[in-house]
Design a protein around this nucleic acid. Structure first.
Lengths: 127, 127
DNA sequence: CCTTGACTCTCCAGCTACAGGAAAGATTAG
DNA sequence: CTAATCTTTCCTGTAGCTGGAGAGTCAAGG
């Protein structure tokens, strides 16, 4: 399986697959004599795994850890849970910040008349 | 006022102030004979303005627009409101995505026993 | 007057997670 | 055989800074 088919199967751009190989996240298990990367089923599964983890907002480094746990048959679910729980914490913190931001901004937008006069509570608040 | 004092007054790192000058966002109004940037009150106010706008999550380009509106005495509040409203939309969209993500992840973390056995719904979901 | 320490300058590199493109070689369809 | 498609490596750029090197500047203390 060439990189193009592997990428399609995993739902990733070719560039990204090559990038993951470069950084040693998911390397092609083999090369053809002419240097083409050859991917097998297992590698494609790993790529898809990473894609989903990235969709969940896991960083590349977190993906690396999850991947090694994914491959480790003797892993404990506690290890995986720890990573996911930490990530959940980050997300919730981000949510809190975003909510505070939104509320303040929404308040400003409401307060601003939005006409052709220069009075603007938004700018007032920023200065 | 040297860059250090200006940065302190505006609540920004010196590096950032220099960066803003480099990209033409807020330039020092003057230089000493030996090349030191000299900031005045107005420039510091602009720096502080940008810092707050950045705290609100406005991009540098958005800051640039806001700044020019901030300086333009004949601006209309509608222009400012348009930028803020568009930004609010983005934030709300991000909030929706983050909420969906959080719910799914929280569900997985709850479902995972987190013991020393390898069964892990989190990994199952990712693969 | 000299030294020391704090400050500033420019330039260069690196961070995340890729994306875009160039130039060259490989493969496949017709 | 040719044209189109695919793949390779390498280089550059993105946003918004941050850190460091090496050199020059300034103010205070002895």
């Amino acid at each position: 399986m060439n990189i193009g088919s592997a990428a399609r199967a995993a739902g990733l751009p070719v560039k990204t697959v090559r990038y993951y190989a470069d950084i040693g996240l998911v390397e092609a298990p083999d090369r053809t004599q002419t240097g083409y990367r050859r991917y097998d089923e297992a590698a494609v599964r790993k790529l898809a795994f990473v894609r989903r983890a990235r969709d969940f907002g896991f960083s590349i480094e977190e993906c690396r850890e999850l991947l090694s746990l994914y491959e480790d048959k003797s892993r404990s679910s506690a290890d995986v849970r720890a990573i996911a729980a930490a990530h959940l914490e980050e997300i919730e913190e981000k949510q809190r910040q975003l909510a505070a931001l939104r509320d303040e901004l929404a308040h400003l937008v409401t307060a601003c008349r939005g006409d052709d006069r220069p009075d603007c509570p938004i700018l007032d608040r920023l200065s």
